[in-house]
């Protein structure tokens, strides 16, 4: 199994298209950081305009923690599209090149092949997220410094002590890994049905776009299905950046406002991952390989 995984990883990282995602993430993070460095105060003034009407706010507001939060908000919607490029190509790419039949002639079970390819997609996803974490969090901390983090939500502001932020990012990235793995699972599952890469890549992207639109639309008829869409649960990482308050309305350091909701979101994503993986194994085992 380990050898199979190594082979699959070798295949993934041998292809130039793998590095498009890393390049795109680096470029996007860099652009956001540059924009915020040059003109971030305008952005902060805009975001704080209601709060500034009643309060004087002092400190390094646009610090590395807030910049990372802004980056994650913007990127975690689009990174799934980059993950799709690899995950939706894993089986269909082999079918397209005619190597799938050859691969299946080896004395390895189809389940092992699927698991090896799926784990390879998972490794790629984690590596992309670690790369993003290094750029978005650590580089931002180096460029913008650190301080308390002001999480400006629609209806209220959460002030997180600088000593209470880092563990939240660790949790948020772990959650994001689950979210991205869900996308990888979907792309991987769809790649079983096609003989070329374009179909499953476009299909996965389309599903993500449609689900994202449904998740964002505030129309009552869609509210019933929203909790079951993985795109709704993918933003659950934000839950780590809200805190509980005590009877005096003081934020409780180290707390999470709705841990149950975060766990529920993670549970739904795990359900998607396991479901799609099992479905991939079942379908692939029954599939008549002709290419």
């Amino acid at each position: 199994m380990w050898q199979l995984l190594q082979i699959e990883l070798f295949k993934i990282f041998k292809r130039p298209r793998t590095y498009i995602s890393f390049g795109a993430v680096a470029a996007l993070v860099g652009i956001i950081q540059l924009g915020l460095k040059l003109d971030g105060n305008m952005y902060i003034e805009f975001m704080l305009r209601d709060l500034s009407a009643s309060f004087n706010i002092e400190g390094n507001i646009l610090n590395g923690y807030l910049v990372c939060y802004i980056i994650l908000q913007l990127l975690l919607v689009h990174v799934p599209l980059l993950i799709t490029l690899i995950a939706a190509d894993l089986i269909s790419g082999e079918a397209n090149m005619g190597t799938l039949r050859l691969l299946l002639t080896k004395p390895i079970s189809r389940t092992e092949i699927i698991l090896a390819k799926f784990f390879a997609a998972g490794v790629y996803t984690f590596m992309l997220l670690i790369f993003m974490a290094v750029l978005a969090l650590f580089l931002s901390m180096a460029i913008f410094g650190t301080d308390d983090m002001l999480n400006l939500k629609s209806g209220y502001v959460v002030q997180l002590k600088s000593t209470d932020v880092f563990w939240r990012y660790v949790c948020a990235f772990c959650f994001a890994a689950l979210a991205m793995l869900t996308v990888a699972s979907l792309g991987f599952f769809l790649s079983i049905f096609a003989d070329n890469s374009i179909g499953p890549i476009v299909a996965t992207m389309s599903i993500i776009v449609v689900f994202t639109i449904l998740s964002t639309l505030d129309i009552p008829i869609f509210n019933a299905i929203k909790p079951f869409l993985f795109t709704t649960q993918m933003i659950g990482w934000k839950g780590f950046f809200d805190v509980k308050v005590n009877d005096d309305n003081q934020a409780i350091i180290g707390s999470i406002q709705n841990p149950d909701r975060v766990l529920k979101a993670a549970g739904i994503l795990v359900f998607y991952i396991v479901g799609l993986l099992v479905a991939s194994i079942v379908v692939f085992k029954k599939k008549d390989i002709l290419s």
């Binding site: 975001m47 209601d50 709060l51 009407a53 009643s54 908000q73 913007l74 919607v77 400006l152 939500k153 629609s154 209806g155 209220y156 502001v157 998740s215 964002t216 505030d218 509210n223 929203k226 709704t232 933003i235 934000k238």
Partner: peptide, 21 residues
Amino acid sequence: TKNYKIPKGVTMEFDTDEPAK
């Protein structure tokens, strides 16, 4: 205090089950 509100589109919050304060 004055009122505080940022449009959900700006803060990218899509959850609708939070009671409005």
